[in-house]
Amino acid sequence: MAIAVLLALLAAAAPVFARLSEDLWGLAPCELCLWQRWPYWAAAGFALAAAALPRARRPLLALAGAAVLASGAVAGFHMGVEAGWWPSPLAGCQAAVSPVAGGGIEDLLRSMPAAPSKPCDAPTYLVPGLPLSMAGMNLLYALGLGGFVLIWATRGATTKR
Results as ranks from 00 to 15, higher is better:
G76F: 05
E82N: 13
C120H: 04
L90T: 01
P99G: 11
Q94E: 11
A153C: 01
S98C: 14
S117R: 15
Q94D: 05
F148R: 08
I105L: 15
M112K: 08
V74S: 06
P89N: 06
L143P: 03
W86L: 08
H78S: 13
F77S: 03
G102Q: 13
P113K: 03
H78M: 04
P128S: 00
P116N: 07
S88T: 10
G102H: 10
P89H: 03
P99Q: 07
M137D: 05
A70N: 00
P89A: 10
N138C: 09
L90F: 04
L145C: 09
P116I: 05
P116G: 13
A75D: 07
A114D: 13
E82D: 11
D107Y: 11
W152E: 14
G156K: 07
G146A: 03
A96H: 00
V149Y: 03
L132S: 03
M79Y: 02
G129A: 06
T124Q: 11
E106R: 13
E106M: 09
P113I: 09
V127F: 11
S71N: 02
L150F: 04
G147V: 08
A91Y: 01
S71P: 00
R155N: 05
D107A: 14
T154D: 06
P87W: 03
V97P: 04
P113M: 06
A83Y: 04
M112I: 05
V97W: 07
G72H: 02
A135D: 05
A75H: 12
V97G: 02
V100P: 06
I151A: 15
G72L: 04
Q94G: 01
D107R: 13
S117Y: 07
G84E: 08
C120M: 09
W86S: 04
P123G: 12
S98N: 15
P123E: 13
A142R: 02
G92H: 11
A122G: 02
L143N: 02
S71Q: 03
D107T: 13
L145P: 01
L143T: 12
S98Q: 14
H78W: 02
G146H: 07
I151H: 11
N138G: 09
P123K: 12
L90Y: 04
M134E: 08
V74A: 12
G156W: 09
H78L: 00
L145D: 05
Q94N: 02
A91C: 00
Q94A: 11
L145Y: 12
G144Y: 06
F77N: 06
Y141S: 05
L143G: 13
V74Y: 02
M112P: 01
P89L: 10
V149G: 03
V74R: 00
G136E: 07
G136S: 02
A142D: 08
N138K: 09
Y141I: 10
C120D: 05
L145K: 09
R110L: 13
G156Q: 03
P87F: 00
L126K: 05
I151M: 14
L132P: 00
M134T: 07
G147M: 03
G136D: 12
S117K: 14
P116L: 13
P128Q: 01
A95D: 15
C93D: 12
V97S: 15
L90H: 00
C93R: 09
L140C: 10
G129S: 07
P89T: 03
